[in-house]
């Protein structure tokens, strides 16, 4: 099987590759989101700490 044929997916390329691309997006999003949330939380806690240290 050539690489061209692989990409072509027997004529179903649009359906197959869209499915896998969406899966990739969903899998990555679920990892990135808690990481971002964690960073936001740590920043907020650090801000709060600085504020209370000044007073």
């Amino acid at each position: 099987m050539s690489f061209q044929e692989f990409l072509h997916m027997g004529g179903y390329a649009a359906y197959v590759w869209t499915s896998y691309a969406l899966a990739l997006v969903v899998l990555i999003a679920n990892v990135v989101q808690p990481l971002l949330q964690r960073r936001r939380l740590f920043a907020a806690l650090a801000r709060k700490r600085r504020r209370s240290a000044r007073n």
Partner: peptide, 25 residues
């Protein structure tokens, strides 16, 4: 799983390569 499903597994005799969506679905 993705490599095996997309490359190694044979095409379905009725559905051709479209059946490969099964490995995500």
């Amino acid at each position: 799983g993705a490599y095996w499903g997309l490359v190694e597994a044979p095409a379905d005799y009725q559905q051709g390569d479209s059946f490969r969506i099964i490995y995500v679905h």
